[in-house]
Design a protein around this nucleic acid. Sequence first.
DNA 1: CTTGACATCGAACGCATGTTCGTGTATAAA
DNA 2: TTTATACACGAACATGCGTTCGATGTCAAG
Lengths: 236, 236
Amino acid sequence: MVKRSQGIGPRHTKILVYMERYQKKYGYPPAIREICEETEISSTSVVNYYLEQLEGWGYIKREKNISRGITIIKDAFNKLMDESINPLVEKVETLVRIPVVGRIVAGLPVPVPASDLAYFDPESAIDIARSMLPQREKMDDLFALEVQGESMIDAMVNDGDVIIMKKATEARNGEMVAVWLLDKDETTLKYFYHEGSKVRLQPANKTMQPIIIDDPKTIQIQGKVLMVVRRLPVVG
Amino acid sequence: MVKRSQGIGPRHTKILVYMERYQKKYGYPPAIREICEETEISSTSVVNYYLEQLEGWGYIKREKNISRGITIIKDAFNKLMDESINPLVEKVETLVRIPVVGRIVAGLPVPVPASDLAYFDPESAIDIARSMLPQREKMDDLFALEVQGESMIDAMVNDGDVIIMKKATEARNGEMVAVWLLDKDETTLKYFYHEGSKVRLQPANKTMQPIIIDDPKTIQIQGKVLMVVRRLPVVG
DNA sequence: CTTGACATCGAACGCATGTTCGTGTATAAA
DNA sequence: TTTATACACGAACATGCGTTCGATGTCAAG
């Protein structure tokens, strides 16, 4: 039911290269409208759209509401350029390395990582193809958790599975979230639905009964679940 | 009758250093109001004032009407910093090197250099102490001419003198300008005065009669004279 | 065919930011 | 003392420029 994104396209690189050149020439970054002209895109919102993606991919950093507030992340930029001249190396940048920051247990709150920080412990990280993730996600907001115990079976999640999450404190209808139930002292994975002033938490397993929350204040959304990865042992 | 400028002061360097740090940190230059905060100047116009001077001195380059359109000229910046840590070297940057672009002759128009271009021919240039020049002059607009012939004696200018000029096509009362008299095919140096719809060109030598121009269209102002330098031979 | 996410557009909105101006003070030269 | 200029302030003003939103087109999965 979804159309998956193309990944980085010619317009992305064109914009990136232009910004790089501009920066080098003038000492400050171009304005969105200047990028428009150069890249022959007629609408500022489209350029903005691409910039958001580029920021999501980690190629640039932007400061909100600041004129020309663009910083080019050299590492990522260089890597991309390398790839473009050497297609053999290909697909390095199409992977996202997501840190596994802990375990998720029914009886404990979700260990959400601090807002920024470079928690880079290459040991505990998993690589996900960019194309597998929704677009425009800033990879800074992503983290992974290993599931401990059988308590999430009603979410179709097994012991040992890894779930990819995005930091969030609220959700929209139909999204799967990790919630902390204050009155039960329990973490659970459920589909989230607003139901008037109440909230319905629906198990993935449709044969099971939903939980109706009368007072939304008694739950805390810890994050949205973007993906669940289960690696099965192979013999041979 | 004038108060001479202090030259580069603590505020100039403070602003310069801040811009340098900011640029390095964020990848783009600060806005005027950010400089205000940092340097504890309460008015944007004051910062603008200093920036204009810094541009005049050649420390930075600015693009009109462009947010954060400041480029730091590294050479000048480094030189300044060197001086500040090594006062012995001192007074290097207090000099302006002005190109001598040609000769001024009564019978020919003034050879005004093209607007920008790096006409750097170190052979024919003269150094002038910054403090000798009016402030806020962009040194790009300055050039020098060597006087040829005795035809400017009524301007108290001798053969061999060098005059420092600023590019201009109009003037204000009391300024000395180099004008081209269309109907006489002649260049001359005179003090300039508006006289209603006419123009009065007054020789520096007050015993001489002024020239009254009925139709201002018959003259072309080639530049303002900022200084006249006469180097006399020394024996010994 | 319908659905929903991607991709694009154009126009409007509003804050960010450079520019201008009137005014005032201090200082050095005349 | 007077004068011309550097230096300084703050308030408007004008525009640069990022952001938002509704509309439309396209394409792949159901």
